[in-house]
Design a protein around this nucleic acid. Structure first.
Lengths: 312, 312
DNA sequence: AACATCTATCAATAAAAATTATGAAAAAAA
DNA sequence: TTTTTTTCATAATTTTTATTGATAGATGTT
């Protein structure tokens, strides 16, 4: 039994296909077939049920895959120990970012980070919180930036910053006249929201519910991006809430529609999250340093009240 | 990096010697030298400091060995999963037994066990509780039989039986006339004990202390085996306590010196203990079944009061 | 029926591991 | 000190193992 064989098994289990798995392993398909057969022969069991299309794991196979993932992941940690010893910060690093953070935060720190740590090959992907949590647990992501707290025992969190919510209220809206807005003024029925699956949406709904006991039944419109939200709002379809960093990007005319909250200002907590095993911790800490440094200049609010974005 | 290389590293780390390690791995010494060098080259670090005699681990080396042990142990669990699936009970199994249990319990169950599970290659070693705990943690023992509770978070326990203490009181002793003895009658100063390191000694001392607030200062004599204890006692050097199973083995004349306790009868708890990772659990359960079955016939006390043998 | 997709098999070859034989350095013994 | 022994490294060679390209067979699709 070798680590290579185990990783071949993992690849086939994940792809449910020898040919695709072989590509991901950068070997030919017969290599996988033969090595996996060899392992099956040695253990004298079948890991895959090849009669099923697509291929399926047997009962033992499922248990073996779980253990194999364990072993393969633990084997990565050997290199990690060496890197840590050398103070080496480099190698491939897969980072997930939620959609409502991606467009504003990424440009702020990416250039800085690459400059400071040129040996790290960052692979960044925009994913929902749900996908992020799955992929951190199965090892396909090394870390992610998401709204917290998540309260998942397998995932650790390091708070990066608190991002205040800002009201975006078009000219024709009943609240446009008000200089500063109170949380109690918000009405869900009146608010443009992101579509389901965005945790920012959850945060806003929670905010409204907290202060008005509103149900989440009747939303007027839902959109997939905050950009669209602003456009829709401009068309007079309702007000919306923006995460603070987004308000730095909009044009001067639209800035006139921004209305800040009275203190305490509601905000979301944005954190760097990673698996509890703390693999590649040097890079995670490097990321935290760079991002915290950059954000400290951009967000300088005090008396910020935090609401939980995933209040299930 | 391969599991084989990692196990070579473990062998050298444990033996502090390439030649001996090679023998344990059933390969020649150059094989180890080359494979370990190859691993060191790939990681671009030194695992061993070869200038020191005997050879020593480097700082990184120590961390790598810890992780390597992890990986190698986890790799054994693959075979374990397969065995479990097949209901196969076999392979090498290393069992430790404390000295005061070994001579009485082993003959009771060994023949039975071998008959019932002929494919298991039992390797049994007599060890103190302290050694047992170390070796269970480092994987050199699969399980052990010891007095419990141990209260170690890495070690799980399954109680096999409660073994009452029996007084062995020679003719000339002040208590010889008494038919039944009370725990309160015991005097540490008056009692022959096993030498330091035997947990049975701890148990007895604890028993005396519990009822008389005696200090453990002045013991008259100490011995390494219970056999010797009986001989010394016969010579009129004091009374002693025997674990019940030992009393079944002594000759008729000596049996006259046995005096049972009044209820509640003090006893020690004897358990099958094993690492929390539950490797080779099928064999552990098979052992438990056989031993419990055998002992149930031999010990049939009720109203047994338990004292902790390791009261630190 | 023809085609496409997928895995297994085979022989050839490349790569890696293990072995035997040997050498050099350090420790132990004379 | 000199000799002997121990111990690890190196080199050349053999053995074993992994990988590949080509292809066959099986299954499902159009």
């Amino acid at each position: 039994m070798t680590i290579t064989q185990l990783s071949y098994v993992l690849a086939v289990a994940e792809n449910q296909n020898f040919t695709k798995a072989a590509q991901k392993c950068f070997v030919t398909q017969p290599t996988l077939s033969m090595q996996i057969q060899k392992l099956e022969d040695q253990l004298d069991i079948l890991i895959f049920d090849r009669t099923k299309k697509p291929i399926e794991l047997t009962d033992v196979g499922r248990k073996i895959v779980t253990q194999a993932r364990n072993i393969v992941n633990e084997s990565y940690r050997i290199q990690d120990i060496v890197d840590q010893q050398k103070g080496f910060i480099g190698g491939e690093f897969k980072l997930g970012i939620i959609p409502t953070v991606m467009p504003t935060l990424l440009p702020m720190f990416l250039r800085n980070f690459i400059k400071k740590h040129p040996k790290v090959k960052l692979k960044i992907e925009e994913l929902t919180t749900e996908e992020i949590m799955l992929r951190i647990k199965d090892g396909h992501l090394d870390a992610a930036i998401a709204a917290t707290p998540l309260e998942d025992e397998n995932i650790k969190e390091r708070v990066l910053y608190f991002e205040p919510f800002v009201n975006y209220i078009p000219k024709n809206h009943r609240l446009h006249g008000a200089k500063k807005i109170d949380v109690a003024d918000l009405e869900v029925d009146d608010m443009l929201l992101l579509e389901d699956g965005h945790c920012f949406r959850e945060g806003v709904i929670n905010l409204c519910k907290t202060f008005k006991n509103q149900t989440e039944e009747t939303f007027q419109l839902e959109s997939g991006s905050i950009e669209t939200l602003i456009r829709l709002s401009n068309e007079g379809l309702g007000m919306t809430l923006l995460p603070y960093l987004h308000t730095l990007e909009i044009n001067d005319k639209e800035k006139e529609n921004l209305h800040y909250f009275n203190e305490p200002i509601p905000a979301r907590e944005v954190s760097l999250i990673y698996h509890k095993s703390e693999l590649k911790m040097q890079i995670i800490e490097a990321l935290q340093d760079v991002i915290s440094g950059v954000v400290r200049g951009a967000i300088a609010f005090q008396n910020v009240k935090i609401i939980s974005p995933l209040p299930k």
